[in-house]
Amino acid sequence: EVTIKANLIFANGSTQTAEFKGTFEKATSEAYAYADTSKKDNGEYTVDVADKGYTLNIKFAG
């Protein structure tokens, strides 16, 4: 089991951190699914992958 950390960075400057656990593939998939659901309210996003994929910096356009 691994933990994927997602740092969500919103257009207004606020941030949120979420953690997803499971296999690398499952946790990563859940992090992207979470970003997709947040996209409806926060606009399109880009992802900067860090820490060999264990940290995702997800920046929303607003």
Results as ranks from 00 to 15, higher is better:
I58G: 00
Y45D: 01
V47Y: 04
L8C: 05
F10C: 06
A61S: 13
E44G: 09
F10S: 03
A18Y: 14
T37S: 15
A31K: 00
F20V: 01
S14E: 13
E1R: 09
I9C: 10
Y45S: 02
K52L: 14
E44H: 10
I58M: 10
N57M: 07
A18D: 04
T15S: 11
Q16D: 09
A35N: 01
Y32Q: 04
K5T: 15
A61M: 14
K40T: 10
T3P: 02
E19Q: 10
T17A: 08
E19Y: 15
K5E: 05
D36V: 05
S38W: 15
A33M: 10
T3K: 08
V49C: 08
K59F: 15
T28R: 09
A35S: 04
V49L: 09
L8F: 14
L8D: 00
V49S: 10
N57T: 11
S14D: 13
A18R: 15
G13V: 03
A6I: 15
S29T: 11
F20R: 00
V47I: 10
T28M: 14
Y32L: 14
E1I: 15
I4V: 11
G43L: 04
S38Q: 15
L8K: 03
Q16P: 01
A27N: 01
N12I: 04
A31S: 03
V2E: 05
A50M: 13
I58P: 00
T3L: 09
A35E: 01
A18W: 10
D48M: 12
E30P: 02
V47F: 04
K39C: 10
N7A: 05
A50D: 10
Y32W: 07
K5S: 07
E44I: 08
A18F: 14
F20Q: 01
F60G: 00
G13D: 04
I58K: 00
E25V: 09
V47C: 07
T37I: 14
A35R: 00
N12V: 04
K52T: 08
T23I: 07
N42R: 08
E1Y: 13
A50V: 13
L56Y: 03
F20C: 04
G22P: 00
T15M: 13
Y54V: 05
G53C: 04
I9G: 03
T46H: 09
K59I: 15
N7H: 12
Y32F: 13
I58H: 00
A33N: 10
F24M: 10
K40C: 12
E1T: 11
K59V: 13
N57V: 10
T17I: 11
I58Q: 01
F60C: 03
A35G: 03
F24W: 12
E1F: 13
I9T: 12
A11K: 10
I9K: 07
D48W: 10
Q16K: 12
E19W: 15
I9E: 07
N57A: 04
E30D: 14
V49H: 07
A18Q: 13
T17N: 07
T37N: 15
N12F: 05
I9W: 09
T15H: 10
G62M: 07
Y45V: 02
I58L: 06
T17E: 09
E25S: 09
A35V: 07
D41L: 14
T15K: 12
D51W: 02
K40P: 12
A27L: 01
A18S: 09
L8T: 02
S38H: 15
N12Q: 05
N7L: 11
G62P: 10
L56D: 02
S38E: 14
T37F: 14
E25K: 08
F24V: 07
D51H: 04
A31V: 07
A50L: 14
D51E: 07
D41M: 13
T15P: 05
T37M: 15
K26Y: 11
Y34S: 04
T17F: 11
T3N: 06
T46N: 07
D36A: 07
S38C: 15
T23R: 06
G13M: 05
E1S: 11
Q16R: 12
A11Y: 07
D48H: 12
G62T: 09
Y32E: 03
S14W: 12
A6D: 00
V2G: 03
T3D: 02
A11C: 12
E44N: 11
I4R: 00
A6N: 00
S14M: 14
S29H: 11
T28Y: 13
K21V: 13
D48S: 13
F20Y: 04
I9Y: 13
T17K: 09
K39S: 14
V47L: 06
T15Y: 11
T37A: 15
G13H: 05
T3F: 06
A27H: 00
I4F: 01
Q16G: 07
T46G: 04
Q16I: 15
K39P: 03
V49P: 06
A11R: 09
D51F: 03
E44P: 14
V47P: 00
D51L: 03
S14P: 07
Y54D: 03
T23C: 07
Q16E: 14
K39G: 08
Y32C: 07
K21D: 05
G43A: 05
K59A: 08
T15I: 15
K39E: 05
S14L: 14
T37D: 14
A50C: 13
Y34I: 04
K39W: 06
E19F: 15
I4D: 00
A11F: 09
D51I: 02
F10A: 03
T55M: 06
F60I: 02
E19R: 08
D36W: 04
K40I: 13
I4W: 00
K5Q: 08
T55I: 10
F24P: 05
K52C: 15
I58N: 00
Y34W: 15
F60H: 02
A50Q: 14
Y32N: 03
A31W: 02
G22T: 01
F10P: 00
I58T: 00
N57Q: 06
T37E: 15
A50R: 12
Y45C: 03
D41G: 10
A31G: 03
Y54C: 08
A33I: 09
D48E: 15
E25M: 08
E1D: 12
L56R: 01
K40A: 13
L56F: 04
E25T: 09
V47T: 06
F60Q: 01
K40N: 10
E44F: 09
G13I: 03
A31P: 00
N7Y: 11
E30L: 13
F24A: 05
K5M: 09
A27F: 02
A31C: 08
A61Q: 13
K5L: 10
Q16C: 14
T46K: 08
N7E: 05
F60N: 00
S29L: 14
S29K: 15
E1M: 13
L56Q: 01
V2W: 04
T46I: 11
N7R: 11
A33S: 09
